[in-house]
Write a protein that binds this DNA or RNA. Structure first.
Lengths: 355, 355
DNA sequence: CCGGGCCTTGCATGCGTATGCAAGGCTAGC
DNA sequence: GCTAGCCTTGCATACGCATGCAAGGCCCGG
């Protein structure tokens, strides 16, 4: 064993095993042509020297880094850490490492991503971050697959994985109307985020279908503080909403706190509350938040599969994958008065979904 | 602009700028000897070709990857995502990238870390993950600095950054005793985690100093589900505790849910509850959890500084940094009956701390 | 017994950048 | 005007590994 010295190289192993450096390389390359006997000798020498192939050097010759960059704007919303965790495991299972990129608060992710291109990442996953069309074009030229996660973009033709934002918003409208609510509120995420826009559009369209007005709205910017302020705004109105849909669970919890502890409202008696994502805190019984789910593992699996596919076949057309979710009813909303049906002994709320 | 071709190399830039490849390299190396005029020509050519130095190739020659691997066992506990976020930004500010490592559930991190050594990472930060002494030795030989975050280890001489686990436990004991509680419970994290052990030891020693017994204890393994089970266990006892200290906030919230919704207990009237970390959910008013803080930014700053220092000076002795926290009192515990003092017009609870 | 073909191996080279070394140009001082 | 010395530059090479190519060995069929 060498002490503090530089790590053993394939040449060191070759010398010790009495073979050529190429043989060592082949011994560590699955599927390479090498005799069983030679491989054994190499492996023995490698073990004795504590040798591991240098991934940096390997990347240089193969021109594939087996690194995927993943950008996320913030991790306060529980949804993202869980995505990150699953993504890291999922990518690793396919032999990729995950490089984590957190843009500075309030800054655009572009400079960060550009920096990461120096790392020759094999792919880029953008969660809760948009991609400027300039950078998208740059990636396309560099042949770096880009995948938007929980976002889409209109400015460029990019692949994406999202939940059923539009349908989710509709279902929530259906549920709230069926629960007998009449004055609706919406707390938006970041204004120009496609996710928030689609959820809102589904919601307002759903309401309109039942003959209800556009809801009162306020902007929560996906942050706890801004959502709290939005809640104060909405709840102080003369025509206070009796049902509020928040663009995600994280903001819904902020609204719940303000409603209960600043306005003394009971949920759902005085105010129904719905979120989106169905994250862990939504399940905590102090909130028991009704939420439209974005199933974590399926979404991550789809993302991993898609990005790998894009790497293997760069010429493939872009794809927009939509992972189905479902409305998870909990105690933060009243049960609907109608629209129930029995299936396999379970009581399912079908609602008035026309689709 | 080249379409879909391989990215421009320093040689391409050199040719276009009419200089040698070395000149291009020097133009991108801060502090290298190069004429202003030449640098200008190189920069112009580089811009025209969309050139960025290849970090992989650079790492190969410089023998420094500027990548730091960070392992975390789980991200459910809000503490870790926030650490991750701050760590990524902090490292980036010093020119390092963060490679995220999530061991498979229930598996040891060793194989993962070994795999990452192939990436020639410049350093390794282990959060909520232990390091086998075998691997620690291997890292030492390879000259890879290792930093334990929110953990220590007795089996090897390794640097670490932690909060005031022992003192925190003591303070909590002081607070609960001062609040008039008499039957104490403790929910441990993973049994062999130094963090949980130290907090428990501080707690029991603190209690003992006031003449109280070792508390009833149960194991929550840092998970929500296990902590819920632990709570059921503790709360079903004939001598039900009237105060429970949980080794972290995440588990404390699980206990709060069970206490309220399964046992109909009021907090803090029937049961006082204390956590550790002072994460975001502890501040949510539905919990208003008293907690001993682990200040995020100072801990991360210390970790980043320490790991960089270790990289620059590999021969430096290991260090155990302890970042001071404070007891944050909220509504989940009764206010203590004594021990208050005025300072600068603020009412400070000094407690009976002897240290 | 001979030849074709497959398996295995080593040689040589390339991946893109950094850097020691020596040469050349230029400035300043005498 | 000459030389010492600094600044700048290019050349050559190294970093550690993968891989095309050709040579050698072996087996098997004819």
């Amino acid at each position: 064993m060498n002490e503090g010295r530089r790590p053993a190289t394939s040449t060191d192993v070759a010398r010790r095993a009495g073979v050529s450096q190429s043989a060592v390389s082949r011994a560590f390359t699955p599927g390479a042509s090498i005799a069983e006997e030679t491989r054994r000798k190499v492996e023995e020498a490698a073990r004795a020297l504590g040798y591991r192939p240098n991934a940096i050097a390997r990347s240089l010759t193969t021109r594939r880094s087996r690194i995927i960059g993943m950008a996320a704007a913030y991790l306060q919303n529980q949804f993202y850490p869980e995505v990150l965790e699953a993504m890291s495991r999922g990518l690793r299972a396919r032999g990729y490492q995950l490089l984590l990129l957190m843009p500075e608060h309030g800054r655009h992710a572009d400079p960060l991503l550009e920096e990461v291109m120096a790392w020759q990442v094999d792919g880029l996953i953008l969660a809760s971050t948009t991609l400027s069309s300039a950078l998208a074009e740059q990636c396309r030229q560099a042949g770096i697959p880009v995948l938007l996660f929980n976002r889409t973009t209109s400015t460029a033709h990019v692949s994406s994985v999202t939940g059923e934002n539009h349908r989710g918003g509709q279902r929530i409208a259906d549920l709230l109307v069926a629960g007998g609510h009449r004055r609706f509120g919406f707390v938006a995420g970041i204004e120009n985020s496609s996710t928030s826009q689609e959820r809102e559009r589904g919601f307002t369209e759903g309401l309109a279908r039942h003959g209800f007005d556009l809801p009162a709205r306020a902007v929560g910017s996906y942050s706890f503080e801004a959502a709290s302020a939005a809640a104060r705004n909405l709840l102080a109105r003369a025509d206070r909403p009796d049902a509020i849909f928040c663009a995600n669970d994280h903001m819904a919890i902020a609204v719940a706190e303000v409603a209960r502890h600043e306005f003394g409202l009971r949920i759902p008696e005085d105010l129904a509350l719905v979120g989106f994502d169905d994250t862990a805190p939504a399940k905590w019984r102090s909130y028991a938040l009704t939420s439209f789910s974005q199933p974590l593992q399926p979404m991550v699996d789809a993302a991993v599969a898609l990005v790998c596919e894009m790497i293997e076949n760069p010429a493939a057309p872009t794809r927009q994958a939509v992972v189905p979710g479902e409305l998870v009813m909990r105690a933060s909303t009243r049960l609907p008065e109608s629209g129930w049906l029995d299936r396999d002994g379970q009581r399912i709320w079908r609602g008035h979904e026309s689709g």
